[in-house]
Design a protein around this nucleic acid. Structure first.
Lengths: 251, 251
DNA sequence: CGATCCGTTGACCTGCGTCAACATATGTGG
DNA sequence: CCACATATGTTGACGCAGGTCAACGGATCG
């Protein structure tokens, strides 16, 4: 498995950050932009399959995803794995570890990923000098909490078919907001093993469940990825309304 | 079901807050104490079974639990319920709703509960004038996230017996840190229905699972509550190490 | 060209759900 | 004071959603 990490000097100046052009994110004031630009110490390119952060470690950095997909997960001693959430452009990772010391989960890249690198030690400066950004940080943590709440509801109380529908609708909504189109459709770069480990199901049953969604023309499983054909149908099946976020902050 | 809420003028001055005497919480500087004292606008007493916050509402307040137990949950349209986490003294509730607008979960009291009331509109003042408290807010949100991560792992990948063991060990650890002893043992004021809705199981299976833990002398189910007899055994069974929090902030 | 990863399918098994009945406590209105 | 209702816990019989095992096909890659 590829695990190369490449450290570069800063390549994309924050002023030209491609994410800021998206409707989805809130605008920054020039001062904020300058501060963040200063906060950013570099960029990191990571191969698909590489581990970005490991449970049990104490990282000196936190990151914002600039491009690519990843996921957060925890494991039990005997190898059972639970995927907690997915990371997409604009997502901040490692905040939990930065605030509380040791990482309690791992993060892995699903595709090639580019990361903006921040120093954990400079986090305090945000709270001391940039109330708005500090507020954003808390907002970002609350957003993650909200997503986990919905995931818990899903795994605890939805059937396999409903769970799968929820997951795919959820990923679709996020990808769409970021305009991650692949031609006309939104394509999600995960394997059925990832779906299984997210939903708390076995691979075999996951396969059969996804096939049912395929028969209903809601999705199409392409090689190593999934196309969403009918997001409304998925949402209805799961009994999920979607998030109504207008603009989102990001660091 | 009782749903009385009683609003009082401030009774417990923050300077004499009983929670601050606990080893478990970090100390405040006098300035912080004064600010929080000012931030607090009153107290609320709530009966067991009362709903404190409702999914879909926009609350103008957030609260810190001063005494008593409660829980956070979400429901599906057809009535299926998932308990997300439990609230105990020192826990901040309603932050998610305050930051993001609409509440996406409900909160209910398990026992009579006393709450410190804060105005949502004054939250901004914390970020603008009290960097340390703002940091604490983010820390508190990250802590909730960490707990949800572990819950997800539990529901997604642990067996019924392991899940139950984890839940009870988890509640025990928290209760113990707050010195919520009932004589010698820690007693947890929940019904088996709550356990079922937390673990994503049916009541019948929950009953049989708890019975097994009882046969192993790890717990004893008293009327409407649970005594923990062997927390180490529960943790080992669940494959859970516990949280190693030393001191915790609270607002 | 074997090795590895990923998806697919069928046969069979089991952990947990559902249904149903019953026990005990507590409360409530008459 | 009784009659009844509701909340909680307990237990057994039975069914099914989802797990496990096993085999196979296609794609990709050193």
């Amino acid at each position: 498995m590829a695990t190369t990490k490449t450290r570069n000097s800063q390549r994309t100046p924050c002023e030209q950050c491609p994410l800021r052009k998206l409707e989805h994110f809130r605008n920054f004031t020039p001062e904020e932009l300058e501060f963040v630009s200063n906060f950013k110490t570099g960029e990191l390119a990571v191969d698909a399959g590489a581990t970005i952060l490991v449970e049990g470690s104490h990282s000196a950095h936190l990151f914002t995803v600039l491009s690519g997909w990843g996921f957060r997960y925890k494991m039990l001693d005997d190898g059972r794995r639970q995927i907690l959430n997915y990371m997409m452009p604009g997502d901040l990772i490692g905040l939990q570890g930065s605030l509380m010391g040791e990482m309690q989960h791992s993060i892995e890249a699903l595709s090639p990923v580019t990361l903006c690198v921040f120093e954990r030690d400079k986090l305090g400066g945000i709270f001391r000098n940039h109330a708005d950004l500090a507020y954003d940080l808390t907002w970002i943590a609350a957003r993650e909490e909200r997503i986990l709440d919905e995931n818990l509801l899903s795994i605890g109380r939805r059937s396999a078919l409903e769970r799968a529908a929820y997951l795919l609708a959820f990923l679709y909504q996020r990808a769409k907001a970021l305009q991650l189109f692949d031609g006309q459709r939104v394509s999600i770069p995960i394997t059925q093993q990832h779906v299984a480990d997210t939903l708390g199901l076995s691979i075999v049953h996951t396969n059969k469940t996804l096939k049912k969604l395929g028969e209903r023309k809601m999705i199409r499983w392409a090689d190593k990825g999934c196309d969403i054909l009918d997001d409304k149908g998925l949402m209805q099946l799961a009994g999920w309304d979607g998030y109504k976020e207008k603009k989102r902050p990001f660091i």
